[in-house]
C-alpha cells in the first residue's frame, strides 16, 4: 500500500501538490487525471522519490520514501517519467537489463537474465531486442522502457503519461498491457493519463486532481459524471453510456 499523508510540494509560493492525503495501490490500475498543472505528474514524482517533499510523508509498504535506501525502494517500486532522451547508444536488451540493477548491483545472474528475456517477450520486443533505441519509433521505445520497469520486478509500477505521442493503436496496446500486468502478476499500477476516456476504459479507480488537490476519487462510474468532469477540466463534458461503458464527449 502507498500512503500519502498531507504531502505538499511548492515551486516558489505556488503549491503544486497541496496537502494531499491518499491511499494508493489497493486495486490493479489506478489512473490520475486532471488538467495541465493540476499536480498529477508532481504527485507521481513525489511518490517515486524523484522529487523531495516540502512537507508531509509518503510511505510505500510502511517504508518512508524520504528515508529508505534507494536500492530497497527500487526493488519495491518502479517509476517511469517522460524522459527518454539518452546520450549513450543502447540496444533494447541493454536497456531492459538496467531493470535488474537494483537486484544485483549491476551483476546479472541466471535469474536476472531470465527476467530480462521474460520482460522482452511480455512486450513483444523479441524482434527488436538487438536494435538501438534511437532506431525505434516512439511507441516501440515506450515499450522498451516499460520492459525495463518490468524487469525490475516490483510490486508497484508508476507511469507518467505513458500514452504521450503514441498513436491510437499503441496507446490501446499499452493500456491493455497494464491491465494484463495487474491481472497476471498482481502489479499495482498507478498511471497519469491525459485522456479521461482511456482512464474510464481501463482503470479500476480514477483520481481527479485540480490545483494540487484531489477533487474526486473512486471507481470510473462515480468519477465519470458530467458535473465532476466539468469541475476537473473546466469544460462542459457530456458523458454518455455506450454498451455499459461511460464515455466523455468533449470534442466539440
Amino acid at each position: 500500500m502507498i500512503t500519502v499523508a498531507s504531502a505538499t510540494k511548492r515551486y516558489g509560493r505556488t503549491a503544486v501538490v497541496d496537502d494531499v492525503a491518499l491511499e494508493l495501490g489497493d486495486v490493479g490500475v489506478t489512473a490520475i487525471i486532471g488538467a495541465n498543472g493540476a499536480g498529477k505528474s508532481t504527485l507521481l514524482s513525489l511518490i517515486g522519490r524523484l522529487l523531495p517533499l516540502d512537507s508531509g510523508r509518503i510511505e510505500i509498504d510502511g517504508l518512508d520514501v524520504g528515508a529508505t535506501k534507494g536500492d530497497v525502494l527500487a526493488r519495491l517500486v518502479a517509476v517511469l517519467r517522460q524522459e527518454n532522451h539518452l546520450t549513450a547508444r543502447l540496444t533494447v536488451r541493454d536497456l531492459v537489463g538496467f531493470g535488474r540493477f537494483p537486484h544485483g548491483r549491476g551483476r546479472i545472474d541466471a535469474a536476472g537474465r531470465a527476467a530480462i528475456e521474460e520482460a522482452i517477450a511480455y512486450l513483444d520486443l523479441e524482434p527488436l531486442a538487438e536494435r538501438f533505441l534511437d532506431e525505434l519509433s516512439g511507441g516501440q521505445r515506450q515499450r522498451a522502457f516499460i520492459a525495463m520497469a518490468l524487469a525490475q520486478d516490483t510490486r508497484y509500477l508508476l507511469l507518467d503519461e505513458p500514452l504521450n505521442s503514441l498513436d491510437l493503436r499503441h496507446a490501446v496496446e499499452i493500456m491493455r498491457l497494464l491491465r494484463r500486468l495487474a491481472a497476471e502478476r498482481g502489479t499495482r499500477v498507478v498511471v497519469v493519463l491525459h485522456d479521461l476516456n482511456f482512464a474510464a476504459a481501463h482503470a479500476d479507480r480514477i483520481i481527479a486532481m485540480r490545483d494540487g488537490r484531489v477533487i474526486a476519487d473512486g471507481p470510473p462510474a462515480s468519477v465519470m459524471r458530467s458535473e465532476v468532469l466539468e469541475a476537473v477540466y473546466d469544460l462542459p463534458i457530456d458523458v454518455r453510456e455506450i454498451d455499459g461503458a461511460r464515455v466523455g464527449l468533449y470534442f466539440r
Binding site: 524523484l50 534507494g70 536497456l95 537494483p102
Partner: peptide, 14 residues
C-alpha cells in the same frame, strides 16, 4: 552506466 539513463531513471533504479 546507470547514470547514463539520466537522473530520474538512475534514482528509480536505486
Amino acid at each position: 552506466d546507470v547514470l547514463l539513463l539520466g537522473e530520474s531513471h538512475a534514482i528509480g533504479l536505486g
